[in-house]
């Protein structure tokens, strides 16, 4: 069994926009050449500002959005070459948890129907068997089974997210894309859901792609973290390394913006403020996408596209001005 469950190579997802009956519009390059491996049993955090393509990447891995080009291999099998029907059968193994726990539950169905739907889709089980499995799933995610006949609008945000998690677990998947599963919840509930996800990972030996726009949310749950900027992965490292020693200027800026608990450190530390706005993915800058805001940008950054390079052991960054010999951008 190979260590990598998922291998993504040069994945691109472009959305057509503004296309009328005749003529053509321009494309939104939501994911623009991502290569990434996800290891069996790990939690890979995926962070980046809103709009950088995280959700699109997550959905493309499950082929809920069709990629424009590139390849995704899942457990040694090329997902993008599967027919619609074959892909449908694989869906048992790959599941998703959504950001908005209200929008992701059909308002006309009861909790029992929602959680049972994937079971009934994949297996021919009797009503009673399905019900007893739903009951167990509800207990697993911390919901009382006596609410099985209730409707989504009768629950709080945190409880709805538990329903969504139970639905995702119903077919006993191996891989879960959790797309900002806590960002729509009250702060007091966030930790509960994070703990639930962490417990489930251990109990059911799950692999997670955990998406968030908030570096703090992924810090504790992730083994490794990938940082995205305008459709590309710009840094990838073990969670600790990424926080303690960010290499790529964009990651450095993100981390320097995080508040530090110790007030003395907080007062002394230097903060990198980025100039300008994030450019539109409709018309991203040439070369390094970050060059319009990078404090270290030079002329060549506008021309050549930097690749993810292993700068330090297990620590990858995409910046053409640093390398294994010169890992620190400040001293280049």
């Amino acid at each position: 069994m190979s260590e990598d469950l998922i291998k993504i190579r040069d994945l691109k997802v472009h959305y057509r926009t503004g296309r009328r009956l005749f003529g053509s519009g321009s494309d939104v390059r939501a994911v623009d050449g991502v290569s990434l491996d996800i290891r069996r049993g790990e939690t890979l955090g995926l962070v980046g500002e809103s709009g950088c393509g995280k959700s699109t990447l997550g959905r493309a891995i499950l082929r809920l959005t069709e990629p424009t080009s590139g390849s995704i291999s899942y457990d040694g099998e090329d997902l993008l070459s599967l027919s619609g029907g074959e892909m449908r059968r694989r869906r048992k193994r790959l599941q998703m948890i959504f950001q908005d726990p209200y929008a992701s539950l059909d308002p006309r169905m009861t909790v029992g129907q929602i959680i049972a739907e994937p079971i009934r889709t994949f297996e021919s089980v009797s009503r009673r068997d399905a019900e007893s499995r739903v009951t167990r799933l509800m207990e697993t995610v911390g919901l009382s089974p006596k609410f099985i006949r209730r409707y989504p609008h009768e629950f709080s945000g945190g409880q709805r997210q538990r329903i969504g998690i139970a639905r995702a677990l119903a077919v006993e998947p191996e891989f879960l894309v959790a797309d900002e599963p806590i960002s729509a919840l009250d702060v007091s509930i966030q930790a509960q859901i994070l703990n639930l996800l962490q417990d489930l990972r251990a109990e059911q030996r799950l692999t997670y792609l955990f998406i968030s726009h908030d570096l703090r949310a992924v810090r504790h749950i992730s083994d490794r973290i990938a940082v995205m900027y305008l459709g590309r992965v710009v840094e990838l490292a073990d969670a600790r390394d990424l926080y303690d020693d960010p290499l790529m200027p964009y990651t450095q800026a993100l981390i320097s913006a995080l508040p530090v608990p110790d007030p003395k450190v907080e007062a002394r530390r230097e903060r990198i403020t980025l100039k300008g706005e994030i450019p539109s993915p409709l018309d991203p800058p040439e070369g390094c996408h970050f060059h319009t805001r990078c404090p270290y940008a030079v002329e060549s950054c506008k021309r050549s596209t930097p690749q993810l390079v292993e700068i330090k052991p297990r620590h990858f960054a995409a910046c053409s001005r640093i390398g294994p010999g010169t890992p620190d951008i400040r001293s280049v």
Binding site: L64, R88, Q95, D100, A170
Partner: peptide, 23 residues
């Protein structure tokens, strides 16, 4: 999202139309 969720859990197009969209 709930249509996406139905697709993610393998529901076929007729199921999506009759169980989710039409109601």
């Amino acid at each position: 999202d709930f249509i996406l969720a139905a697709r993610a859990t393998g529901v076929r197009v007729p199921g999506i139309i009759f169980r989710h969209i039409i109601p």
